[in-house]
Design a protein around this nucleic acid. Sequence first.
DNA 1: CTCCAAACTCACACGACTAG
DNA 2: CTAGTCGTGTGAGTTTGGAG
Length: 289
Amino acid sequence: MEKIQPYVKAFTAYLKSLNKSFHTTKQYTLDAKQFAEIIQHENKINEALQLYSKTIQEKYPSFNSVNRKFASIRHFLTFLQLRGVISVYNEEIIAPLTKQETELNVLKEKQFTRALAYWPKQYEIALNEEHEWLALRNTVIVFTVAELGIKPAELVRMEWKHINTEKNEIIVLASKSYRVLQCSKKLLELLEDYKHHTLEFMPLTENSPYVWLGVGNKMGEPVSVKTIERIFKAMSEQLQFKVTATNMRYHAIQKLLTKNEDPKVLYEQFGYARKGVLLEREQRFPKNS
DNA sequence: CTCCAAACTCACACGACTAG
DNA sequence: CTAGTCGTGTGAGTTTGGAG
């Protein structure tokens, strides 16, 4: 068997030619590179796979990680076969491991209440106008995630024109689709309040279409998901428990689940493609909470 | 055909680093 | 200090294949 390290580059080009997304290409390339590294001194494909499988399982504790890497390598092996670098191999060696159920991390009611109170408190104790504005923005961000249960990537895409004050509706742009969500009067008022403060604090951003702006940001550009992460990170550190956009999202979903909403309404509201995914999540919600 | 678990893909989480 | 980018690991979300 010839050395496969030189084929990693060609693999990347191959993935691009298949119109794989940026993320997928990047991840598969990374995995292929690691694979080539591990097996570089092996001569027989099945022995190489044995070594790889063993190395990966020792290095990564999570089943998901191992299985994702195996999936990458199956693609890579197919590619190598296409190029005639290898012929057949024993598929069993890198067959997916059977995965175990993991319980979802959902915010408890008490934690949820405390999380909501965090930024309003920061607003009260703000020492200057900038901190005050930031605290207000972060308050509205957290309230939006809490009520709508949307994901960070969806949040940062929000534009003022997506908000319909008459019909109490907000259009949420997902990666490949959009959905229209009902929202409370209170949230609309908060958004409006934040809009006015932003206009006063940063008048030059007046014609930015985006809702969530930053102080050290490129003029009129929305903040990134990294900033959303940091907003939750800051809360977590102060509050002594982990709050993320995702576990707040789950809190919102669970609330509706316990109210026995129609599943169809639920999976549409939270942007799931089909109800199966939601049912799977339901299994994994913590039992007594 | 329907349906759903497995396979696959995408993006969040988080640390390290950088800019202003 | 607030924010963006990049690298890496992993969980969330989407698609598919094959059972019925």
